Simulated scan of single mutants.
Amino acid sequence: MASFVAALGVAWFFTLLVLRVSKRFAHLTNDHDLDGPQKIHASPVPRVGGVGIFLGCLVAIGLAGERSGGWLMACAIPAFGTGLWEDLTKRISPRMRLTATAVSALAAGYLLGALLKRADLWGLDWLLTFTPLAVLLTVLAVAGIANAINIIDGFNGLASMCVVIMLAGIAYVAQAAGDPLVFRLALVGAGAVLGFFLWNYPAGYIFLGDGGAYFLGFYVAELGILLITRNPTVSPLFPLLVCIYPVFETLFSIYRRIVVRGRSPSMPDGIHLHSLVFKRLVRWAVGSSDARLRTRRNSMTSPYLWVLCMLSVFPAVLCWDSTEWLLAFLLLFSTGYVLLYSRIVRFKTPRWMILRR
């Protein structure tokens, strides 16, 4: 618990410091694009909130003397650094960010042994006995989750609170499985994110940015892999169900862009599930151009998706040692997501879900 409090306090302080410094270097740190398809903010906002989170984790892990945690933070540098450089320069392509995250995953696999070597699924376990295939699947999983966290980072508090929920689930199962290392690292991550969250929600004084999103995606993915690598009783599907909301959002977005709209999967659009919730469920401020009301409407969107995230994390925590049940909940969540998206996009949202004045 001391590490949790330390991470929260350090992240809160450094996020405040970044906010102060950003006033002087706004041309570098602020997001000035207010017209993009996924841009909701009404004025330029610093998008380097990942700095406070990274430093919060680094300091708390250092104070706790967690050697493995130190190696994990070292491995995260390519993913975090490339994302942060994009936040500052706007010149780093998604491919370069994913490549850097893959390098981080390879480093963690080599230094910490964080490799996916079992899936508890027929046929796949045999394939994973071949180390090159295990390395490839690990890299794809880590880079994919990092990109997924970046995709859901669209509203104040959305991605950060979802990550807290995921890390809380991982911490609980690590404690139940008797893994103090993963337990402490999960608490450190949750504390650091909450330190940032206090500045990000509800007013949106600072954004997570690509550096923060890619770092948190890497951190969550690696803790999930370490948990199942170090504890044979934990089902390999547990981390997947914990992260299924951002992962399925990404997969569904790729399907929607390529198959439905005939566009490149890397082209941004404004019809993610969280965007539709903002436009069609939080109706009380629709059409308002007032910055205060727009910010409030922004903050009212995220709780819908926090609930969606919890609907996957709760069953994952309850059934962490049962691959069969976890697989059933994965299918249930995927089906429910598609049905919910279909109803919202066709203006058939249940009346009880719509927020009115």
Rank of each mutant, 00 (worst) to 15 (best):
A6G: 08
P202C: 01
R47H: 06
S266C: 12
I149A: 03
I225A: 02
P265W: 07
I151Q: 12
L19C: 07
L305N: 02
M300Q: 14
A64H: 08
A60I: 01
M166S: 11
L237Q: 06
D269I: 00
D87G: 01
R230G: 11
V182K: 12
V282Q: 04
L216Y: 01
I258R: 12
G9V: 00
T250L: 12
D290R: 11
L326Q: 12
L28P: 05
K348C: 05
L58I: 07
R294V: 15
G154M: 10
G9K: 00
F54T: 15
Y205H: 15
I258T: 14
A291V: 11
N200W: 10
L8Y: 10
H32Q: 12
K279A: 02
A316W: 02
G9R: 00
W71D: 03
R343G: 15
L340A: 13
G109F: 02
G109T: 07
G50M: 04
L311G: 08
G189A: 09
W85T: 14
D33H: 03
H272L: 01
H32R: 14
V282M: 03
V260Q: 13
A168V: 06
W85E: 11
V277I: 12
G83H: 05
L327Q: 09
P37D: 03
V59I: 10
L237T: 11
L326P: 10
L181D: 03
L112D: 09
Y255W: 10
A176F: 05
D31Q: 05
K90C: 02
A176E: 13
H274Y: 14
S68Q: 13
L311Q: 08
A119T: 11
A213P: 04
R256Y: 05
A26G: 09
A64N: 10
A213N: 04
L305Y: 04
A143N: 05
S302D: 01
K117A: 08
E86P: 00
L241Q: 07
P268N: 04
P132F: 04
N200H: 05
S264H: 12
D120N: 15
T295A: 13
V247S: 15
V48R: 00
G189E: 09
A114H: 01
R230Q: 14
D269E: 01
A177M: 04
G204T: 09
M310Y: 07
T129L: 08
L181A: 03
L8M: 10
V260F: 14
G109R: 05
V188R: 02
L326A: 13
L167V: 01
G195N: 00
I77F: 09
W122I: 13
L19T: 13
